[in-house]
Design a protein around this nucleic acid. Structure first.
Lengths: 113, 113
DNA sequence: TATAGTAGTTACCCTTGGGTAACTAGTTAC
DNA sequence: GTAACTAGTTACCCAAGGGTAACTACTATA
């Protein structure tokens, strides 16, 4: 394998990494919801309309495993749980801005016409 | 619905638009392959190792429908077909750079440690 | 006539993503 | 003791994503 090919293989690996974090129906919505600050489980559930009671815990867990968000348990009565973006999660801002930026352009070109 | 909420709904719609284009196992690899210039069907097939004979035509068609790539038929003997990025496809450069950029950072933080 | 090179297509299968409904566990207020 | 609030979990189902193998259609060359 020459240098150019192995360079491309590396790029493909990196895009797979990024996609694994943002892919699916609910991960970006959850991340977006938390960009405005920490939120409790119930708040996220209310914010993200239509998310099912199965998907929310599952996707929160996945994001936590990828160190994008943190889960903090408060043993108040009743127990409350807060989720917030980690520094790694906050570092997605430029990426998300670019997703929004290009998506806006795309919509103007395709859906708009 | 207040202004902030409808703003968020709009953002969600835009991220869904963008994800529809880049999501899946093969779309970014195909787009990346074409950033180096136009390529023939067979060249893409050889470049993207492991892509199945079902997925390549299917994904090329989807990208063409989204106006990311164009398909040009040359009636040489035997027939050859060339694919290349449209201006809209080329406009993804900043987005892809940011995907690579954040993915590199992510890998350093997670996989690297 | 048969083989190889274009660029695909089709039928079938398995796995993953996501939804629904019902249930858990701990505590407080009525 | 019963309802209600917290934050989930579990079993079951269907649809979509993606892989494999076999096939198509056309032409050139041996």
């Amino acid at each position: 394998m020459n240098q150019k090919e192995s360079m491309c293989q590396h790029k493909l690996m990196i895009t797979r990494d990024t996609l694994e974090v943002i892919q699916g129906k609910w991960r970006l919505p959850i991340i977006l919801a938390l960009t405005y600050g920490e939120k409790r489980f119930g708040e996220i559930q209310r914010d993200i309309v239509n998310i099912s009671p199965k998907m929310l815990p599952q996707e929160l867990k996945a994001l936590e495993e990828n160190k994008i968000i943190t889960r903090t348990l408060y043993d108040s009565m009743p127990v409350t749980v807060e989720y917030s973006l980690t520094p790694l999660g906050k570092s997605m801002k430029k990426l998300i801005d670019e997703i929004l930026n290009w998506g806006t352009h795309f919509r103007k070109e395709i859906v708009g016409k």
